[in-house]
Design a protein around this nucleic acid. Structure first.
Length: 616
RNA sequence: GGCUUCGUAGCUUAACUGGAUAGAGCACCUGACUACGGAUCAGGAGGUUGCAGGUUCGAAUCCUGCCGAGGUCACCA
């Protein structure tokens, strides 16, 4: 049984006996004792002063005396103000180590049969993935892993935004300027190829816009809009969308293509198919390199009409209302939101309509209690509204919806802007960190004896560990500044330094071989401070996983892994030898503790999508 | 402007959800490989937790008001 539970139980009954009142065991405040004090766990006794009518230090003293007498696991205690510091006996810790080693799933919860669906990535198909997607994908992936470790059956999905004006822009540009070129003709990764035509479209559009700005038509337009001479530049900058919709030739072509697509025009559909397939081919490579996959793909082209029937029904039930112009709305003021449009006056759907439909469809497909949307915080309001609507519709899954919102990734120079060419490409970035890992590794030379292929694999594992850890360690709610040079760091609070701690253990275990009889670890006495710190940290693992799952927060796992690696490194350097231990018991114990650390680090990092190499 | 999220060392960040002297990493300075892998460890310097009030045994954390930064307020997605 878990020592925290034991403390809770003993303290609860002791309080009842000594002072005659009940406390909820879960309300007790029990922390790991701070390093500067003696003890393993600390009970805070301030909250009991009123009911016990005694000073906190008196309560602590009294409780301490009773529980150390009653339970063999409590070796000793000391009291400082309202803090009762309890030292746990070595017997408990030795048993604890045996338990970890015996249970390869230590830290995970047992499967409880509930299902969680996690949506992440969900890119547009007009250009390649970038740094923003990487944060999204890493959060989605690790959240999925964490939920699974917390006992859920997890379905990983993405909805691919494969239709709309954006992809039409790529298509038009390719058709007009592409001369039927293929990605291999231009020696480009196929999603980058499609992105290239998207950029081309924007460039041509801008050129056209620029020329138009000095045309008679533009002059008339400016007069109509009453724009003053000195504001013209700013006006044109802001008015881009109006130009696109009302004047642009190339814009009209793109819009016409979208219409043709919606009408099912065969030529357009086949070009669309071709472009999208190029993009998917490229995405697959990126996903594969990142080490992520999905269980089910949804395509917007199949789902964008969903939801209309739900709106119709809801209209009958008076959940929605119709305005005179025929548009349909919902009043969300009681949810502290405003009125939201759900159908346009011409009867076509908006984003919200589609999302209502897909949520419904997904529940029908998977019956998942939880549905998690990993989407950047710029859409906070949208998801609040969506969830409120589904609530009003009485959807059975409405209470299990969660928006895993995360902050934008900014560069030291500010926000990424495609127009300014500051978007950090996902493929480039991965390549860069892998190269950096390679350089660093070759400088050390510790794996230079290995076959080149194996080395390359390890460089990749290290580089990706650096990138992934750098991003995941930040709490999702915070927007983060991504400094490329810092992400290449392999030392300090980084993925590679955690890998390194684990790799050293592997090396030591290999060398130890059969040197010690594992059973004799039970005879070890006098666990040292640096050993205890590792044990206490190992002990937190199941709680950390549970909390990370509850809070949908992978950064908890990342920070935990670092804490554990750090505690272990400290032990490693403490002078307590494993291979040349003072006794068989000590060696066996330390080896077992190291193996347990390796096991936990491996699982913890796996939850983040990070692998531990054999050597590095 | 309304709503909303965030403000912690020069920089990137943590704090078990109200607990002890706010903990790390980077950068800077000083040390440690004839011990199991130095991508490490030991130590130094660096903080009025944006500001001002309040709540209480106790506040980075909760409340109020300011200040600053992001996001959002489309018949776009």
């Amino acid at each position: 049984m878990d020592i925290i539970n034991i403390i809770q139980e003993e303290v609860t009954t002791t309080i009842k006996v000594l002072y005659g009142f009940d406390v909820n065991p879960n309300d007790l405040i029990i922390n790991v004792t701070k390093k500067e004090f003696e003890g393993d766990y600390t009970l805070v006794t301030f909250p009991f002063t009123k009911l016990a009518k005694k000073a906190p230090q008196v309560i602590a003293q009294e409780i301490g005396e009773v529980i150390t007498k009653n339970n063999k696991y409590f070796l000793s205690f000391n009291v400082i103000k309202g803090f009762l510091n309890v030292t746990i006996s070595d017997d408990y810790w030795k048993q604890f180590l045996n338990d970890i080693i015996a249970n390869k799933d230590y830290g995970k919860s047992t499967f409880h049969g509930k299902k969680a669906l996690v949506e992440f990535s969900s890119p547009n198909t007009n250009k390649p993935l970038h740094l923003g997607h990487i944060r999204n994908i890493l959060l989605g992936w690790s959240t999925s892993q964490i939920l699974e470790a917390a006992g859920y059956e997890v379905v990983k999905v993405q909805i691919i935004n494969d239709r709309g004006i954006a992809i039409c822009k790529s298509m038009i540009a390719w058709e007009k300027f592409g001369n039927n070129a293929t990605p291999s003709d231009m020696n480009m990764k196929s999603d980058h190829f499609v992105g290239h035509w998207y950029v081309t479209f924007e460039k041509k559009f801008q050129e056209e816009y620029k020329i138009w700005q000095s045309s008679p038509e533009a002059k008339k337009y400016l007069e109509e809009k009453n724009v003053k001479e000195e504001n013209i530049d700013a006006f044109f900058k802001k008015d881009k969308n109006n130009y696109f919709n009302n004047f642009s030739k190339i814009g009209a072509e793109a819009k016409e293509m979208l219409r043709a697509w919606e009408a099912g025009d065969e030529k357009v559909r086949s070009l669309w198919q071709k472009m999208n397939n190029w993009v998917y081919e490229g995405f697959d490579v990126t996903y594969d390199n990142l080490g992520v996959s999905f269980d089910k793909l949804y395509y917007e082209s199949n789902t964008y009409l969903l939801g209309k029937d739900i709106i119709e029904n809801g209209l009958k039930d008076k959940i929605f209302y119709k305005k005179e112009d025929g548009s349909v709305w919902i009043d969300l003021e009681d949810a502290k939101l405003d009125h939201k449009l759900v159908l346009r006056s011409d009867g076509t759907s908006v984003y919200m309509t589609q999302d209502i439909g897909t949520a419904h469809q997904r529940y029908e497909n998977h019956q998942s209690e939880k549905m998690i949307y990993v989407v950047a915080d710029e859409q906070n309001y949208h998801f609040q509204a969506l969830f409120a609507i589904l609530q009003k519709l009485g959807e059975p899954y409405a209470k299990g919806l969660h928006h895993l919102s995360y902050g934008m990734v900014n560069l030291p120079s500010g926000r990424m802007k495609s127009r300014e060419g500051t978007v950090v490409d996902a493929d480039d970035l991965m390549q860069e960190v892998i190269n950096e890992a390679k350089k660093a590794s070759q400088a050390i030379g510790s794996i230079s004896d290995m076959p080149e292929e194996e080395q390359e694999l390890i460089f990749k594992q290290i580089g990706l560990a650096a990138l992934k850890f750098f991003i995941i360690k930040v709490n999702p709610v915070r927007s983060m500044i991504f400094d490329p040079s810092e992400s290449l760091d392999l030392q300090g609070q980084t993925g590679p330094s955690i890998q390194y701690a684990a790799v050293r253990v592997k090396s030591a275990i290999r060398k130890a071989g059969e040197k010690y009889n594992s059973e004799s670890s039970n005879e070890y006495s006098n666990i040292q401070k640096s050993e205890k710190e590792v044990l206490l940290t190992l002990h937190q693992f199941p709680t950390i996983i549970r909390e990370a799952a509850e809070n949908y927060n992978p950064s908890d796992i990342a920070n935990y892994c670092y804490t554990l690696a750090k505690a272990y490194n400290k032990f490693w350097a403490s002078g307590l030898s494993m291979l040349n231990a003072e006794s068989d018991e000590a060696g066996a114990f330390r080896l077992k503790m190291s193996a347990a650390t390796l096991q936990v680090l491996t699982l913890g990092m796996q939850l983040l999508g990070i692998e531990i190499p054999e050597r590095m």
